[in-house]
Amino acid sequence: MTPAFLSAVVDTLLPGDQGVPPLPTGTAAGVAARPEPLLSHRDGAEHDVALRAIARAAGGEDSFVRADAAGRIACVRLVEAEMREPFRALVALVLQDYYEAESVLVAMGWRVEPPQPAGHPLPAFDEALLEPVKRRDRMWR
């Protein structure tokens, strides 16, 4: 599979948006920069089956690359409807890289650092909220 085809698929699945801050496209976030998993030709690898089906639906990898956004989306939808599991495997694979990319975490208002060692601050619990429950009679039997 050509890098151009993979990039076109990735950006169709992850087009990015114009929010504040904007979400980058999949390739801008670096998803197709690490093509090994996408290129893996392990026999029967589900995402690979879906990629080939997308190329077929478009009439070839180059045709998919040359198609406009609407044309690419139509091909992808076709494959999604035809082969749900392989398609989901492909989506799962690109999502993994994308949602761990720094630019995406920042755009979504989340921090780049992993959960540890900093953890997260949470306010202490206001016990006054429990007053109505504390007034209840025993509920257990």
Partner: peptide
């Protein structure tokens, strides 16, 4: 869906 502009929204 988990992909496309709708998923981002």
């Amino acid at each position: 869906p988990a992909w496309g502009a709708a998923a981002h929204r």
